Computed example of a mutant assay.
Amino acid sequence: MISPSSQCMAPHACALTIGPTLPSFYLDDDRLPSNKTYGFNLFSSTAPCMAWLDSQPPCSVVFASYGTVADLEPTQLEEIGNGLCNSGKQFLWVVRSVDEHKLSEELRGKCKERGLIVSWCPQLEVLSHKATGI
């Protein structure tokens, strides 16, 4: 069976997805409320960032993640970090472990005042969390 998301992907990529591309928990159909991960999950959903999000008020956290493809220069990371710090909002910022060395200690210290920097997070859980939700 070809999933609807495969048909949507056809004009953009030569790939065929198998099965749902989103766990059913996020589809608002309540069929499988415990299905929150993509197949085999190597990471625990008890990621430290989730406990931090639980301590934040609803709709108060900005989530910043540039994925695994973006290769940002140290100056770009500094600008993003300063923008997040100066925004006046709490934030969760995902910086890949291979890029962590690009962050200055000064910026790390400044970020600790309002935000949390992590090298990985369960993105769907973060995006559906009450602290980042609308």
Results as ranks from 00 to 15, higher is better:
57 P>H: 07
82 N>A: 09
44 S>C: 05
90 Q>H: 13
129 H>L: 06
97 S>I: 07
63 F>M: 10
33 P>W: 10
134 I>W: 12
28 D>T: 04
16 L>T: 13
36 K>G: 03
78 E>K: 13
76 Q>Y: 10
16 L>S: 11
65 S>Q: 01
115 G>C: 05
14 C>N: 14
111 C>T: 12
79 E>P: 02
77 L>P: 00
17 T>A: 15
66 Y>S: 03
73 E>T: 08
44 S>R: 11
73 E>Y: 01
93 W>D: 00
84 L>V: 03
7 Q>N: 10
132 T>C: 15
10 A>F: 12
72 L>T: 01
104 S>I: 05
39 G>T: 04
57 P>C: 02
127 L>M: 11
67 G>M: 07
36 K>L: 11
120 W>K: 08
42 L>R: 06
35 N>I: 00
125 E>M: 09
59 C>R: 15
114 R>W: 09
3 S>R: 06
104 S>M: 06
12 H>F: 15
25 F>A: 15
4 P>W: 10
69 V>C: 12
32 L>A: 11
20 P>K: 08
79 E>G: 05
78 E>R: 12
115 G>F: 08
118 V>K: 05
49 C>L: 06
47 A>L: 01
10 A>Y: 10
55 S>F: 03
77 L>N: 03
21 T>R: 11
22 L>H: 00
27 L>A: 14
49 C>F: 04
124 L>M: 13
125 E>K: 05
32 L>R: 08
1 M>D: 13
96 R>H: 01
75 T>W: 09
72 L>A: 07
18 I>A: 12
92 L>C: 01
1 M>S: 14
10 A>Q: 13
28 D>G: 12
35 N>G: 04
47 A>I: 00
79 E>W: 01
31 R>K: 11
92 L>N: 02
41 N>L: 07
58 P>F: 06
115 G>Q: 03
79 E>M: 06
120 W>A: 10
17 T>F: 15
107 L>F: 02
27 L>E: 15
105 E>M: 12
23 P>Q: 04
112 K>S: 15
52 W>K: 05
76 Q>I: 05
38 Y>P: 01
69 V>A: 15
93 W>N: 01
27 L>R: 14
98 V>A: 12
64 A>C: 15
122 P>F: 00
131 A>W: 04
19 G>T: 06
13 A>L: 15
42 L>S: 13
72 L>S: 07
80 I>E: 00
60 S>E: 11
86 N>A: 13
15 A>K: 12
